[in-house]
């Protein structure tokens, strides 16, 4: 049965993911030099930015899978979309929690209506809506289609959201947003950030695979109880 394959894929992704996470911790706490102007608080950056990257990637997956689901009607695409959406919301939550912890020291305030913060918050709400919508309908098929529509709307809205909020608070100094890829950044900082990006990406896909297996089992169980031999899943594979 395919769940065994999924489990093996998940573990295969998780092992290097966890190894890289351990490496990341060694790098962040023992190896990478402290940033000059911002001090130790800058070390939050190495989980904050990878989380943001994973969240955006997850929402990209949600939109792509949603569009493909509406187009092809393959249930597996919807399962992938909901798995990615759950991860995307959680990683956005990490971004929204670690951001203020950093900002309290770097900017002297927990929250400002800075463009990136505002658009991240709105994104969080959009995809929480996505998850809520799935459970809010009497027909699961309908919930999946509704959620797919919202997933697509969300990604279409992102560029406009970002443009709008940037416009609204354009006075914000851009210099506070650190750019480790810039000329002054120590190479070790870039390496640490890259470790973080790789570790979080692998972990995300590992847990997403696990979540996908759960969704698959849920669908199979509900179709088994309905007395039909899981036509949508089987048909999707054809």
């Amino acid at each position: 049965m395919q769940l065994t394959g999924l489990r093996r894929t998940g573990v295969l992704l998780a092992i290097p993911g966890i190894a890289l996470v351990l490496l990341l911790h060694w790098q962040v706490f023992f190896w990478v030099p402290t940033e000059v102007t911002m001090g130790v608080i800058q070390r939050i950056y190495y989980v904050h930015v990878p989380s943001a990257w994973v969240a955006f990637m997850a929402f990209g997956i949600v939109a792509a899978c949603s569009a493909a689901y509406l187009w092809l009607g393959d249930e597996r695409l919807d399962m992938a979309a909901v798995s990615a959406a759950e991860g995307g919301v959680l990683f956005t939550t990490i971004v929204l929690l670690t951001g203020p912890l950093w900002a309290r020291t770097a900017w002297g305030t927990w929250w400002t209506w800075e463009p990136r913060l505002t658009s991240t918050l709105l994104l969080w709400f959009i995809y929480v809506g996505y998850l809520l919508l799935r459970g809010a309908t009497d027909s699961p098929q309908r919930g999946k289609r509704f959620a797919a529509v919202l997933g697509i709307l969300g990604i279409l809205d992102i560029p406009l959201i970002h443009l709008s909020v940037t416009w609204f608070r354009s006075l914000h100094p851009q210099a506070v947003v650190m750019r480790p890829e810039g000329p002054q950044a120590d190479p070790s900082m870039v390496i640490t950030l890259l470790t973080g990006l790789a570790a979080f990406t692998l972990l995300f896909f590992a847990i997403m695979t696990y979540r996908y297996a759960l969704e698959r089992l849920t669908v199979e169980r509900s179709t088994a109880f309905a007395g039909t031999p899981a036509p949508s899943v089987a048909g999707g594979g054809a």
């Binding site: 709105l122 994104l123 809506g129 809010a136 809205d157 959201i161």
Partner: peptide
């Protein structure tokens, strides 16, 4: 077509509408 039909609309619409 949702169960909490009246309360879910602003929840879905406002995040998308705020920039507008």
């Amino acid at each position: 077509h949702t169960r909490p039909s009246d309360s879910i609309l602003p929840l879905l619409a406002f995040p998308l509408l705020i920039p507008l």
